Amino acid sequence: MPTLTKGRWKNKQKVLVFTSRGITYKGRHLVNDLRNLMPHTKTDVKMDRKSDLLMVNEICEIKSCNKCIFLVGKKKRDVYMWISNVPHGPSALFHVEYLNMMEELKFTGNCLKASRPILSFDSKFDDSPHMKLLKELFIQVFGTPNFHPKSQPFVDHVFTFSLMDGKIWFRNYQIVEENGELVEIGPRYTMTLSRILSGSFGGPILYINPDYQSPNLVRHLEKKSSTKYVDNKAAKIDKKMRRSDKTFAADETDQVFDTNLTAE
């Protein structure tokens, strides 16, 4: 744990939170929400997506940060999150879904800015080695370091990490009463683990999620299994079956009051 020595904070733990170019507006708002909730963060300008990921380590070194949350936007619809321990690793890549910001759903909860959070983890994080690694990584990144100069000596909200349906569900709650009553603050989102690397944004692969499917593959499968073409063909056949080919004879009295007939 960090300690205070001669009035100066030693073993500084800072997190760099920034995005790549092409990120969605929800990704930009997520960065702002994380910075408001985590007083030990710094930010930087957007990085070009074509740049090498290893450049993030150099940016963290320039900013004097030893942790990093890097959001990557692809195809103007998908958001990926890198969480890394700089510069030696490990690092994990997640696909972020169901993202709702603090101001989007008008959450009724509220907390003191720069206050310290309680980190709550699902018991399933202790069932496998790779989940234990992610738990420790989340503790070091999302937990406010002790005696941080920008943090407040109050604990009034909880970060919860739950495992369900193969996704990690993030929620932020305000502690309203001493009996443990909670009110959601936001933001809320889910993270689907893609892979874990031994290094920071590189190195050998420690774990690959066998159940992970990229958003492009999911959209391709949905389009392939779509019944739109079959439904259109069935509608044309039904219309053809309801259409009758029988013609009816004309009534002789239809032209009684027709005055446009030419006189003979």
Rank of each mutant, 00 (worst) to 15 (best):
E264V: 13
K63I: 12
I83Q: 12
S120I: 04
V15N: 14
F138L: 12
T160F: 03
M38E: 07
V79K: 03
T108R: 10
I59V: 15
N32F: 07
T247P: 00
T262M: 14
S151Q: 13
K224D: 06
Q13T: 05
C65N: 12
H88P: 04
P215Q: 02
V17S: 13
S128K: 11
C111T: 06
N100H: 06
N110A: 10
V230S: 01
R116L: 09
L119S: 05
A92E: 02
K135T: 01
S162I: 08
S115R: 11
D127M: 10
D211Y: 00
M102G: 00
W169K: 05
K26P: 05
L37T: 03
M55L: 14
L16H: 14
S151C: 14
K167A: 13
D245P: 02
T24H: 03
N110L: 07
E177V: 12
D33L: 04
S200K: 03
M81H: 01
D122R: 07
R49N: 15
K239W: 03
K113Q: 11
F125M: 07
K124Q: 14
N232E: 04
D251A: 08
H95Y: 13
I59Q: 14
N11P: 00
E61C: 07
L193R: 06
Y25D: 13
S123N: 09
K63G: 11
H130F: 08
W169L: 10
I83H: 08
D238S: 12
S115M: 11
P149D: 09
E103P: 01
G143N: 13
R171V: 10
M164I: 11
S84T: 08
T253E: 14
H40T: 02
T41L: 01
G186E: 07
L93Y: 04
G202Q: 06
G89Y: 01
M81I: 09
K6S: 08
L53S: 07
I23F: 08
S128H: 09
N260T: 15
F18G: 15
L99C: 03
Q255T: 08
G166F: 13
E104N: 09
P39C: 00
P145V: 04
F170V: 15
K42M: 10
P210S: 01
L37P: 12
S200A: 09
P39D: 00
K50I: 13
F18Y: 15
R171E: 15
K76G: 05
Y98V: 01
S226V: 02
V79P: 04
E184M: 09
D238F: 11
G166T: 11
H157P: 10
K224V: 03
I62Y: 13
A114T: 04
P90R: 05
L221S: 07
I139L: 04
E103Y: 06
T43R: 04
F94W: 10
I139N: 08
T3D: 14
S51I: 02
K74P: 05
T227F: 03
A234M: 15
D211E: 03
N57R: 08
L119I: 10
F257W: 10
Y229C: 00
Q213V: 00
